[in-house]
Amino acid sequence: METFDKREERQTDLAKKNSLSDYFAQTYALSEIEFKKLFRDPTELFTRAVQPILWLTVFGQVMSKVKAVPTGEISYLAFMSPGILAQSILFSAIFFGIAIIWEKDLGVVHKLLVTPTARSALVLAKAVSSGFRGLVQAVIIFIVAYLMGVKLNFHPVHLLLVILSVFMGSAIFSTFSLIVACLVKTRERFMGIGQVLTMPLFFASNAIYPIEMMPKWLQVISQINPMSYLVDSLRALMLEGGVSHFGIGLDFSVMILIFGLMLFIASKLYAGIVQ
């Protein structure tokens, strides 16, 4: 039996194959929506800022007095500020999957998956949304660190690269979180796993102490931890006289590579969240 008038449809459709411009327009539309939602209810942004501020004002102050961590030319407070920014990016992005599970439980994800939008565009928009959040954290931490006397680098190129780095970090951890969400599918299971993941990612990194201080085995782990590259780039870019341990080029290459991988995996798994 003949189904529909296919040939004719096909011909007009040839020009309508999902083009790159569709891809960007759709990603943009989705990101725009996320942006709107974020600033419609900014309470979350501010409650998220409490923790990093406490780390800087309490932990940072005390550790500066103790002088237990050799940080070279720069003060301990300056040393840890980029680490705390990376930490707040990690902590807020790693629970991003909860929101996806919530949307799935509602049916919002079903509807998006049925539109002619590439899965990777749906994932990318989520990463961008997480990037916006990271940026707000960055602004807050810049202000607090500045008020506490940390010498920050306000060179426009540096600021631009900080923005890029914050976006990359947020994108990596939120997409990772999305992958976990697609695998575990329920909020209860996700909460447990989220808690288990954050601490190792944070402590097995150079966020609050230099890599050289760690035992050998931990050094190895922290060198394959994407968190270390985020911290390293921020430390070099944010601070007056900040230096990179790995090299900025390597930092960004590693982050872009990891994000690419995460994006690829997440795009494959995203549709499975409703199954």
């Binding site: 309508k16 929506i33 509602l106 509807k111 002619p116 939008t117």
Partner: peptide, 29 residues
Amino acid sequence: RRKIGYVPQLVSSDGSLTAEENLLLSAKL
């Protein structure tokens, strides 16, 4: 996907957006 519309058993409009924003998002996608 280009040829179909779907209203799932669950609620699929975004509660944190307005009616118009929901429609605009669909139109763009």
